[in-house]
Computed example of a mutant assay.
Amino acid sequence: MQVAVWDTYVTKQNGTIMNFDIIVPKEQKDEQLIRQFGRQYLASKSLSTSDVVVNQCAFCHIEQASDKMVKSILETGYFILELRNCN
């Protein structure tokens, strides 16, 4: 499965910048839905959207998905790749 990678930066209330990728099927281009996936991820980290500001969520590139990514995409519609300050 080929996927689109959306590079996302979020400023937490304490000023720390989180960086994660939202990975979706390459055909998915609905930016509102992709941002919703980001909000769902943030909620799973106990961060509400009022606690954070999405500085940037932009299409980055297309790549081949790993088995782990495919499984998550089939179950939820997306996969999150944590990069920085996601704890």
Score class of each variant (00 low, 15 high):
1 M>A: 12
2 Q>F: 14
6 W>C: 02
6 W>P: 00
8 T>R: 04
8 T>A: 11
10 V>W: 00
10 V>M: 01
11 T>H: 01
11 T>P: 00
11 T>C: 11
12 K>Y: 10
14 N>A: 12
16 T>K: 05
17 I>S: 03
18 M>Q: 11
19 N>G: 04
19 N>W: 15
21 D>P: 01
22 I>E: 00
22 I>A: 00
23 I>L: 12
24 V>S: 06
24 V>M: 11
25 P>M: 04
25 P>W: 01
26 K>R: 05
28 Q>H: 01
31 E>T: 07
31 E>L: 03
32 Q>V: 11
32 Q>I: 11
33 L>H: 08
34 I>N: 05
35 R>T: 09
36 Q>C: 02
38 G>H: 04
38 G>W: 05
39 R>F: 10
40 Q>V: 01
40 Q>G: 09
41 Y>R: 03
42 L>W: 11
43 A>I: 03
43 A>Y: 10
45 K>V: 10
45 K>Y: 08
45 K>M: 09
46 S>V: 09
46 S>M: 10
47 L>S: 01
47 L>C: 02
47 L>A: 04
48 S>Y: 14
48 S>L: 08
49 T>M: 08
49 T>G: 14
50 S>D: 15
50 S>A: 09
51 D>I: 03
51 D>L: 09
51 D>M: 01
52 V>L: 01
52 V>T: 07
52 V>P: 00
53 V>F: 05
53 V>M: 10
55 N>F: 06
55 N>Q: 12
55 N>P: 03
55 N>H: 06
56 Q>M: 13
56 Q>D: 13
59 F>K: 08
60 C>N: 12
61 H>W: 13
63 E>A: 08
63 E>F: 01
64 Q>Y: 14
64 Q>T: 15
64 Q>F: 09
65 A>E: 05
67 D>R: 13
67 D>Y: 07
68 K>Q: 14
69 M>L: 08
70 V>I: 13
71 K>N: 10
71 K>D: 15
71 K>F: 13
78 Y>G: 07
79 F>E: 00
81 L>T: 05
81 L>Y: 02
82 E>I: 00
82 E>R: 00
83 L>A: 02
83 L>Y: 14
83 L>N: 08
84 R>V: 06
85 N>R: 14
86 C>Q: 10
87 N>G: 12
